[in-house]
Each structure stands twice: as C-alpha cells, then as structure tokens.
C-alpha cells in the first residue's frame, strides 16, 4: 500500500520533470519538424541562469517569492535571447533541408553552446538549493515529501493546461495547429509561416530554459547536464508521438510511473527501463501514442 502510494507520487514528480523538459522539444518538432538537440543547451542555460539569479538574490533577507520569480524570469530571458539568436542566425538558413541535416545543425549549435557555458560561467559547478530547502516538507505516513516536488507537479499540470488552452482557444494557437497539420496549405491561406517559426522556436527555447530553471535547485548545476536531458526528452516525445502535446503528457506519465515502479520493485533494470518502454510502445504504435499514421502520398 505504502509502496503503491510512493510509486504514484514519485512517478508523478518524475513525470512532471519529464513533461517540463519535453514540452518545448515536442512543440518545435510539431511545428517545424526539427529534432532540436540544442534543447539540451536551453536547459543548461536556464539552469545556469537560475543558479546565477539565486546567487544574486538569496541570503539577502529579501522575500523568497521574489527569488523564485527572478529565477524564472532570468532563465526565460536567456531562453528568449538564445532562441532568437539560433533561429534568426542559423536555423533559418537551413529550413527546407533534410530533417536530419536540421537536427545536425542543432547538434552543432549544442556543441558550440556547451563551450559558451564554460566561457561565461567557467568549468566549476553552481549550487542553487535555497528555493528547494526553504520550501520545506510534509509528512504523509512514513513518507516525507518535499513541497518543492509537489509544486513541480502543479507547475507541470498548469503548463499542460496552458498549452492546451493556448493551442485550442487562442488565435495564435490555431495558426500553429494549421501549420502543424499542413504547412503548405497554411501558407497558401496567408499564414506567415516564417513568423510562426520564429515565435515557435523562441517559445520552445524559453520552455527548455524554464525546465532548467525549475530543476536547478535540485541539482548541482554543472557541465554536461544538458546531455542527459536531450535523450530523456527524446524518449518521452517518441513514446507520446512526435509533436503532440497530449503525447508528451502521456509519455511523461508512462515513463515516470514505470521508472518509479522499477526503482521500488526491480532496481536492477532501472538503467534501461525508459528505452525498453520506448521500444515497446514504438513496436505496438510505430508513430507513438498520439499521432495518427500519415496518409501515403502517391
């Protein structure tokens, strides 16, 4: 009983983390058909930005809420700048090329940005634990849960709701849906696809940076944190269906719960449970859970 509850809570916390890092990736893929490896860099910059913000703000006796806000704002501002630079400076020159070429361009950007991090912040690691520890914890039975983790679940749920609402009920969301569905027809109907691309890429970058900012207090912000995130986000997005928000939501939940159950029950297989789930889902549903097979063009 306790185990089931623990699995559920741990699964949800992990799913929240996965969803937050995967949503920007799936958005960019859905609209632009770019498998964005530089998503890891957005995460990294967000985390470093948040760590810097914590360094500036905390331990000065200022109200804590301001610190949370500064973390998020600084990280998202970094995401905005980075997204704009990448999209306007590099990506737009390769639109229309092979998907793998575009993915490789983002890989090149990722390599370069990894070293830009060293140039800006140096090779040492940063701590940003204050928000995590000051949030406190609650005891439920034998388990002690961190309020920050519970907050993470809430943030992920809100983010999911906001994305759903944004796509379904706002003008820009509908434009996006049109582009996702059929780029050429959308352009023929007068949608400025270029602007849509820029905005989407920047939003994706900001979401990636947000993921980094939210995770920063829980980890040591150090070199190489982006690499882990990329492949995790890929897995989640592939399970749910590339480019589908609902898919990312479902994918994160499935992976989160499966991983938590594995750690509690069979810790030996934790290392590849995510990939096993991914392979299994792709075997049964080759296009992921939430994407219908494309019609074949003759």
């Amino acid at each position: 009983m306790l185990n089931a509850f623990a699995v559920l809570i741990d699964g949800l916390v992990y799913a929240a983390y996965l969803f937050i890092v995967a949503i920007g990736l799936t958005l960019i893929f859905g609209v632009m058909k770019i498998l964005n490896v530089a998503h890891g860099s957005f995460f990294t910059f967000g985390a470093y930005g948040a760590a810097s913000a914590v360094g500036i703000y905390f331990n000065r006796g200022l109200p804590e809420a301001g610190g949370y806000l500064l973390m998020v704002v600084l990280a998202m501002a970094l995401g905005l700048v980075l997204g704009l630079i990448l999209e306007r400076g590099i990506m737009r020159w390769v639109y229309g090329r092979d998907e793998v070429v575009m993915a490789l361009v983002t890989y090149a950007a990722f390599l370069i940005l990894e070293d830009v991090v060293i140039l800006i912040w140096g090779p040492g690691s940063y701590a940003a634990y204050q928000p995590l520890l000051s949030a406190g914890n609650i005891e439920i039975g034998e388990l002690i849960l961190s309020n920050y983790d519970l907050g993470l679940i809430a943030v992920a749920a809100m983010l999911a709701a906001a994305c759903y609402w944004g796509l379904k009920f706002t003008r820009y969301g509908r434009l996006l849906t049109a582009v996702i569905f059929d780029r050429e027809t959308a352009a023929a109907f007068g949608i400025n696809v270029r602007v849509v691309y820029t905005v989407t890429f920047v939003i994706g970058a900001m979401l990636g940076a947000l993921g980094g900012a939210i995770m920063a207090p829980k980890i040591a912000v150090t070199l190489g944190i982006g690499v882990e995130v990329i492949v995790l986000a890929f897995a989640v997005v592939a399970i749910g269906g590339m480019g589908s928000i609902e898919g990312a939501f479902a994918g994160a939940l499935i992976v989160g719960i499966c991983r938590a159950a594995t750690v509690h029950l069979f810790p030996q297989v934790e290392l590849f449970v995510i990939y096993a789930v991914m392979a299994l889902v792709l075997m049964i549903r080759p296009y992921g859970l939430f994407v219908r097979a494309q019609p074949r063009k003759i």
């Binding site: 897995a235 592939a238 590849f272 990939y275 991914m278 392979a279 792709l282």
Partner: peptide, 20 residues
Amino acid sequence: IFFAMLSLALSMILYGLLVK
C-alpha cells in the same frame, strides 16, 4: 524519425545490458 528513435532505443538497451 521513428526509425531513428527505435534504433536509438535498441542501442541504448544494449548499453544498459552491458553496463549491468
């Protein structure tokens, strides 16, 4: 992309097995 992702998953499973 599905081909790419499935082949990635399979190679990561081998990785996991070897590490274990």
